[in-house]
């Protein structure tokens, strides 16, 4: 009986653990560990918001896309690295450049990687969006840094973020973006400018 009891417990533990891992529910797993679309380091999961067919996707979407909209209404792209593949960190300054986006409205927001929350600061510079940079025409540029740079019109503060990611929201995406995202979207370029001396 002990053998059967042990087998039952071990089997149940393995079953629960494998399901959590395969569905992306294992503690510490982030939305960026998945993604059905990847463009120049920006990843998106187009299954978010949909009534996905397979149980793994359903569970993953439930965990990482809670209360998110279906792709016909909004799509979300995220990057954790700069244009050379290095992790985004508070101790470095970045320039983000981009152009017009294939959507009715867009925004770019910085989130702390450890818990996917906004960094705890009082800079009131959490994001930029189409309404704030749109006046500059199609091409735009913004700085991401922990201190407000001199003479920079558009700034996203990374103060208190440590390691972070940038999330691009595209509301009311064009049909072309949904049909062929790799062709329709040119995502923002994140260029590292400088780092504090002790930064990696």
């Amino acid at each position: 009986m002990i053998r059967y009891g042990f087998a039952l417990l071990l089997g149940a533990a393995f079953g629960v653990g494998s399901a959590l891992y395969m569905a992306g529910l294992w503690p510490g797993m982030k939305p960026l560990d998945f993604g059905t679309v990847e463009i120049d380091g920006w990843r998106s999961d187009f299954a978010i918001g949909s009534e996905a067919a397979d149980p793994y996707t359903r569970a993953r979407v439930a965990r990482h896309g809670l209360l998110a909209l279906a792709k016909s209404e909004a799509v979300y792209f995220t990057t954790t690295t700069d244009s050379e593949g290095r992790a985004l960190v508070e101790t470095c300054d970045y320039r983000v450049t981009g152009g017009s986006m294939p959507s009715q409205w867009w925004s770019l927001t910085l989130y702390r990687q450890s818990d996917s929350m906004l960094p705890m600061n009082t800079d009131e510079a959490l994001s930029i969006d189409a309404t704030s940079v749109g006046r500059d025409g199609d091409a735009w540029s913004a700085r991401v840094s922990s201190k407000q740079p001199d003479g920079e019109r558009h700034w996203i503060s990374s103060k208190g973020a440590e390691a972070f990611d940038l999330m691009l929201r595209l509301y009311v995406p064009s049909e072309a973006l949904l049909a062929d995202p790799e062709t329709a979207l040119t995502p923002p370029v994140v260029e590292r400018l400088s780092c504090a001396v002790d930064a990696a």
């Binding site: 059967y4 087998a7 089997g11 393995f14 079953g15 569905a23 359903r58 965990r63």
Partner: peptide
Amino acid sequence: TLIVAAIGAHWATLAFAP
């Protein structure tokens, strides 16, 4: 028993997670 428990727990987790 181990195999049956693993399969059952796996699918129950997926079904109830959402």
